[in-house]
Design a protein around this nucleic acid. Structure first.
Lengths: 142, 142
DNA sequence: TTTGTTTCCGCAAATCTATGCAACAACAGA
DNA sequence: TCTGTTGTTGCATAGATTTGCGGAAACAAA
């Protein structure tokens, strides 16, 4: 198996049932370097378990997101996911023109985030913040 | 009519056709202090023009957003809109627990945004950035 | 291994938003 | 005022994601 074993045992220890569907989704996201679309997860999962339902994929992905195991990246109105790496957290900048994704170390957001905490008591969920905008190349074209 | 007259004449001057549907949508968003959901715009618009289609509402709203006339706020997986106030621009913090919305002056984002420009050539679309997280009150409850 | 409890899944349907296309109607010009 | 051009609309449909519900199966305990 791959590097998500620790996640699996942690989840099991927390009392969650590790069904084949869940293991499969976790495996698919963990194997991938970079993000995977929900539909893509579905297609890959079906190779192993032909009867998995797309609803299960979405439910599992949202469940993992809520537990901090995976991170959601919204790319052009579609949901993508990747393993959360708490040792190397990062945010995403998504270009609205080409849907290209660049990553960002969270210290870019740290100061901003601290101010929101201090002045408003609002804790932004930095893990899942995606910055939309236009990238270098696409701006050049316009 | 209300305070969106200038927007109307500007749009007309730009060669866009100001149909009753468009005027109605603009009027509804302008009358409201704060944001309106797309479905809500539809319901209000139908009071005046019973045959407006929901697709038209969405198209018009996206059109106005693209022109910078309205601003989109994503609240709990739903699209909301409000008039853009270029004299008093602001961003939104949306609580993922209670869906409450707080506003934020853009100078909170200014420094952050400038760094992205300078270091990556990425221009974030500040107008439509929504910060997700948990608000003061909801955190207290947990 | 068997049983019981409770979570999870598959299925179907609903929700929200976007889009292709033919018919319609704004606005400009006659 | 009438007419033509072309941008817009309504309708139907598609796509992405979510949700309700009854049956299935994971895990614990016997």
């Amino acid at each position: 198996m791959s590097g998500h074993d620790s996640a699996v045992s942690r989840l099991r220890a927390q009392g969650y049932r590790m069904t084949p569907q869940r293991l499969s989704v976790l495996d698919i996201v963990a194997r991938r370097t970079g993000h995977v679309g929900a539909d893509e997860v579905w297609n890959l999962a079906r190779e192993e378990h032909p009867y998995v339902d797309l609803a299960t994929i979405y439910r599992t992905l949202q469940w993992l997101k809520g537990l901090g195991v995976v991170t959601e990246v919204i790319i052009g109105n579609k949901l993508h996911f990747e393993m959360s790496d708490h040792h190397n957290p990062h945010n995403h900048m998504v270009c609205s023109v080409c849907d290209g994704v660049q990553t960002l170390t969270p210290d870019y957001l740290a100061e901003f985030s601290q101010r929101l905490e201090q002045e408003f008591g609002f804790s932004p969920s930095l893990d899942n913040i995606t910055i939309g905008g236009v990238c270098n190349q696409c701006r050049a074209v316009t």
